[in-house]
Nucleic acid binder design. Sequence first.
DNA 1: GTGGTCTAGACCACA
DNA 2: GTGGTCTAGACCACT
Lengths: 131, 131, 131, 131
Amino acid sequence: MFIFVDDKNPRPIYLQIVMQIKEQIRKGDLKPGDPLPSVRELAESLQINLHTVHRAYQKLRDQGIINMRLGQCAVVAKLREIPASHEEVESILENRLNELITEAFHLGVSKEEFSHLVDKLLEVQDKGERR
Amino acid sequence: MFIFVDDKNPRPIYLQIVMQIKEQIRKGDLKPGDPLPSVRELAESLQINLHTVHRAYQKLRDQGIINMRLGQCAVVAKLREIPASHEEVESILENRLNELITEAFHLGVSKEEFSHLVDKLLEVQDKGERR
Amino acid sequence: MFIFVDDKNPRPIYLQIVMQIKEQIRKGDLKPGDPLPSVRELAESLQINLHTVHRAYQKLRDQGIINMRLGQCAVVAKLREIPASHEEVESILENRLNELITEAFHLGVSKEEFSHLVDKLLEVQDKGERR
Amino acid sequence: MFIFVDDKNPRPIYLQIVMQIKEQIRKGDLKPGDPLPSVRELAESLQINLHTVHRAYQKLRDQGIINMRLGQCAVVAKLREIPASHEEVESILENRLNELITEAFHLGVSKEEFSHLVDKLLEVQDKGERR
DNA sequence: GTGGTCTAGACCACA
DNA sequence: GTGGTCTAGACCACT
């Protein structure tokens, strides 16, 4: 588990943790059943407050990505099947992607460059494909 | 000028306005020299606070995208050249795209679906190319 | 908005708030679009910490039941359609209902009494039925 | 004795054990005088901590449902009479049922579906009635 | 040991 | 004014 928090990043620390854990799961570095460091442990190693880590873990739990139980360390949950209405999900993704595309164009990135970037990033995926 | 503000969008309202105006410029719906509605006018038509619109306009002015002069309506400025180094831009894009991909993964969207979504959205963006 | 917090209740305060707001929505006392008191306001009127109320509101927002935006008071969201896989939902409900039924029988409540109790409680429902 | 502990169940493990033993007594699968597995035995078969099982047995003993004597296995005690006033019991049940109904409502389960679910579950509970 | 809750105070960003 | 984040310390319940 390598997690970095960046004070200069405008994203809140607890969300940085959430995203990095999510990404490690996506990449396959963390697999269902794998234990996460305890709240106290991670807080100390990152030199941040216990509550900040706890908040990140809570968020992950509320999203069904990890399981936490009082008295036990958190563990990665098994990947969910079709979690929410697919339409709604796509609509949210569509909005955020559109913003990103617009932003990219404003910064002088062409359609082709953008498309290649997406393909490149999609390659890095968990080897043990789910479903 | 069609602008929508979405209460459910996590992005702050003033940024929604900023991005939509940017997008209209990119698409060519707004061209250099075109006037923007006055702060009061837009605020009323969107049923939001006057300060919020003002802040959006300030942001656009700070980015050199519009010109504002006391007592006059804001107008779209001449298009800027690429402001930041290409490498830097790609690195930022890469980070944000990666986040989005991770998010999509955890929402049960497959690589193929994501890829198709990107292609679909890139298609739409086809008029008003600048460069 | 009448909310009571009970120190003796083993349920955490923030969850008491969550449940009462949910129930007021179910009964129709709170309708989509209705504003909730500000975090500070409710905290003071309940004589509890600001963060405790905030936590309750966050929970409601994460469940899609209210909308919160920085700088604006929270408002009741419009009721969701089919939010999660129906099967999963029913399975959760079934478990909790089964526990309750077992508990009831242990306390000397008959099937008939239980059934009548359910019917009685189901009567109290929002008049403006959704869907 | 078939007992399952479910990591995803928000209820503490020791309470899951308590409730399942209670339920087996209610159904008649366990009768007064029947021996329970030893703490060690059950802990090992459930792959959980010895203390957790011990705590469950303590809880059952505190409620007068089993008898534990040092050096001997626990045994099911004689059935108790209704411990609390009927009114009080109904009021507790009412609260918990109301919570469940509210929860169901927010998960998109209709009154009819809920009612049918209750009926279905009540049907199953049909052997070992005591009184 | 673990997570869970509550309190408290500070500072920031949005409307 | 509003919500959002981070820190901090205390105490409780579960394993």
